[in-house]
Design a protein around this nucleic acid. Structure first.
Lengths: 318, 318
DNA sequence: TTTCCAATATATCACCGGGTTATGAAACTG
DNA sequence: CAGTTTCATAACCCGGTGATATATTGGAAA
């Protein structure tokens, strides 16, 4: 015999709360409604669920049995409702975050970690890609938000962009590098150093070429190309090679990899690291929490980075 | 957020069966019904439960989560339905059986045990009482059926009565009793034996008085009165006292208590042991099974008892 | 007892939601 | 690309459930 789970819920509520009236207010319904539902259920079952003519309403054996199952139903639905509530308040769910690889490793990941310590029930999926692909993902709906460097004027109108960190590229080398101490550098100084390049498809690779071209250097000796940030920095650490990286990345990694920026100004496109989202999409609540958390984390970080940047360019070193 | 357990059930069915169509036939509903229910649920939840535009319908993460709870609901309701089915088929439930004390101990209990081995999930509550009280219980609804000796003509019209065993009272004594061997007995023989009497209120007590009066004996020496069948039989066993008992009781107990009937015919009211039920009450299914089982058991038993009875009265002994 | 109170059952009505069939749209199949 | 399958939509009907008002009943108090 198939019966309605709602009826079992109601039965459980009445049995557990000790009366129709109490059960009604426990469920947020009217007393006559429950009373009739119980009657219908009894008719359907063919046996009384409550012993007739007992004023402190007392369930029959069968009533107890069915109420036990009603309790299960009640628990399950309430648990389901709770899942929804937590999602709606952004304290639970899944968030797919895309990011530019080097930034992701150096500066974003640790801020995501901080977000996750605030919202431990949120599952974050990280996707590594460059801007064009990230935009594709956002459009597809396979990504909730991207954190990547963008040129403000080249952002398509369908996207919203919130700046997290002004961008500035620098040339980086290992701490003990011969050029690291020099206050002023010329093209001649960086002469025929060999270079570590980021992966060929990355914006940084173009930045590197553009930057060297801007310094007047057309022929570049590239000894290594591609790989992750870690591999690039390991190369830098173990050699006298140079590379081009965002200052914020170098700053974040200065301790763990003993890497320093050179005191020479590069020209490069004005790109800011920021949060890229689709405007149209009504963002899930968890994304709102993520945005707030990330912005807070970066506002701290940005000020220390800018301070260090200024110090460097004024020649006060690291 | 409060949501409808039926929606969760449907979601679970769709997810588990792999599609709306399959889910519909699994639940015995139409496909459009489920389709719309899912749509409504998605609208209510505010997020898609299935990834749009995938033909082998694939649940989103949230869909999976809620479906898991739906599965719980489904299980609970199905379990509740099963409980009902078993009650309706009389394979489960509670049965309150009343019985006359001596009969209950000697002949009924073992037949109830047999019923319980057939229907192990049925819980039998035994009530010991004499006919008038049993009838009260039946009228009150505090008893489903009674097994007791009744005079056919004195059964009130509201009751139905099914004979299980024709009644005949005998005088019983221990096996080695001096009177036990005698083929023909007179009043003189039982002369001034002392008597063990059943409890004062019991029909058997009256039977004893009537029987002795019928034999011409007006003065009776009662050395013990009251107590259970076991205590009465123990008294018989340990002394040369006599008592009056139904033949079927003596027959059942002849081995365990070494008790035998005297070969003297008693006159007593024509009472048959039988099943007494209220006519009006639509009996619970379990009662039908009980009735069948008990009747089958007694039809065997009755024939052996009658055979032994005949043999006794023809003087062939036990 | 009788009276009164609190709790439950009944009555009535409106309406939402789910049931159905018929039909259209979309996606996987060959 | 056509064929097949599956899901979504439309239109309609009906039952169940919601609410308020009211009657009834069991139990306690006078």
């Amino acid at each position: 015999m198939k019966l309605d789970p709602r009826h079992l819920e109601i039965l459980a509520a009445v049995v557990d709360s000790g009366g129709v009236t109490e059960g009604a207010e426990a469920l947020g319904k009217s007393q006559p409604s429950l009373s009739r539902t119980i009657s219908n259920l009894e008719a359907r079952v063919g046996e009384p669920l409550f012993v007739p003519g007992r004023r402190p309403l007392q369930a029959t054996e069968l009533g107890q049995l069915l109420a036990a199952h009603g309790r299960q139903v009640l628990e399950a639905t309430q648990a389901a409702g709770k899942v929804l509530d937590r999602r709606k308040s952004g304290r639970s769910g899944t968030l797919r975050v895309g990011g530019a690889p080097f930034f992701m490793d150096a500066v974003i990941a640790s801020r995501i970690a901080r977000f996750q310590s605030e919202f431990p029930d949120v599952q974050v999926e990280q996707v590594y890609a460059y801007s064009p692909e990230l935009q594709r993902h956002l459009r597809n709906g396979t990504l909730d938000v991207a954190i990547c460097p963008m040129q403000p004027e080249s952002i398509e109108p369908e996207f919203g962009f919130q700046v997290l960190l002004p961008g500035r590229n620098v040339i980086a080398c290992r701490e003990g590098h011969p050029l690291a101490r020099k206050k002023s550098l010329s093209i001649a100084d960086i002469g025929d150093c060999s270079w570590i390049a980021p992966p060929a498809g990355s914006p940084l690779f173009r930045d590197l070429q553009d930057a060297l071209h801007g310094l007047g250097k057309t022929e570049v000796k590239i000894s290594f190309s591609g790989g992750s940030l870690t591999s690039v920095l390991n190369m830098i650490l173990e050699s006298d090679a140079l590379t081009v990286l965002p200052f914020s990345v170098v700053f974040s990694m200065r301790r763990t990899f003993n890497v320093v920026p050179l005191r020479i100004e590069l020209q490069h496109p004005k790109r800011n690291l920021g949060l890229l989202k689709l405007k149209a999409a009504d963002e899930p609540p968890v994304l709102g929490n993520f945005t707030r958390s990330i912005q807070a984390a970066f506002s701290e970080f940005a000020s220390t980075v800018l301070h260090a940047e200024k110090a460097l360019m004024e020649g006060r070193g690291q």
